[in-house]
């Protein structure tokens, strides 16, 4: 059906506005990151770009390199611990019709809805008595708690979409169940598993509450380090923006790399 020029124009304008609204805060942060302190307090676009802010945040007293390292290690370790366990559980939930399946799955999924602030209280007390406050280990443990149920759900969505035929064919060909998982399911689910891995990396990377409560200096991650730029002299916006760029660029790159799967993966668990 042909649509009128007017409705096409309206649609284009709306979409342009949507893009503008979605991009503006990000673009503004990127611009600010390249301004010198004086320009940062002016909304003019006419400024002399500088890389000084990035040099500053990596040097004393900010030393964001350390937080960057923490964020990378914590997010990486969380992914490495949660994905293998989640993939096996997701396979079991997807393929077996066990009696307790519904209630077990319900139990796993409902933990996803437990507010982080509830879990962090006992963890804080526990880590305090174990002397693990302000360590990366503590952060990895709590992040694994939050991420694993979510990833089980997500990977299950991907495995559900794999037809059973190839698996049954492999069993007829003489493969044991574990062999089927190794030779057939994991390779076929690889795009989904990688997507889930990147997804949980992003979740952990952006995580704020645990890092805020469980770390002080040694194990702080980037989102918490942001709050350091709120000083007695006021907020140092140009440095905050530079740190913001540091936080977002790796995540944006990851998200765009997997964007086709990303949109599917985000909703796979929830709708299907």
């Amino acid at each position: 059906m042909k649509r009128s020029v007017l409705s096409r124009a309206a649609e284009t304008i709306i979409l342009l506005v949507v893009c503008f609204v979605a991009l503006f805060p990000i673009v503004w942060m990127f611009l600010t990151a390249f301004k010198n302190p004086r320009d940062a307090y002016d909304i003019s676009l006419n400024f002399q770009p500088t890389l000084q802010n990035f040099v500053t945040i990596f040097s004393n007293p900010w030393n964001l390199g350390h937080a960057l390292l923490n964020s990378t290690i914590v997010a990486g370790a969380t992914v490495l611990l949660s994905i293998p366990a989640a993939a096996l559980a997701a396979y079991s939930f997807s393929r077996f019709r066990m009696k307790a399946r519904k209630s077990l799955f319900f139990a796993v999924i409902s933990t996803q809805f437990v507010p982080a602030v509830v879990i962090v209280l006992p963890f804080f007390l526990m880590f305090r008595s174990l002397g693990l406050l302000d360590t990366r280990i503590a952060l990895v443990v709590v992040n694994v708690a939050i991420v694993t149920p979510f990833v089980i759900w997500m990977i299950k969505g991907f495995i559900d979409a794999i037809p059973l035929d190839s698996e049954e064919a492999a069993m007829m060909d003489g493969a044991s169940r574990l062999r089927v998982i190794r030779d057939i399911v994991l390779p076929m689910a690889a795009p989904g598993i990688i997507t889930s891995a990147i997804f949980s990396f992003i979740l952990t990377w952006n995580e704020f509450l645990f890092a805020l409560i469980l770390t002080r200096r040694h194990a702080t991650t980037l989102p918490v380090a942001l709050t350091n730029f709120r000083t007695e002299r006021g907020d140092l916006w140009e440095l905050m923006s530079a740190a913001g760029v540091l936080i977002t660029v790796p995540i944006f790159l990851l998200a765009l790399v997997i964007q086709k799967h990303f949109t599917r993966g985000m909703t796979a668990g929830a709708v299907k």
Partner: peptide, 9 residues
């Protein structure tokens, strides 16, 4: 992008 951005940020 807005979804991938850290809420704290």
């Amino acid at each position: 992008l807005p979804f991938a951005m850290s809420p704290a940020l």
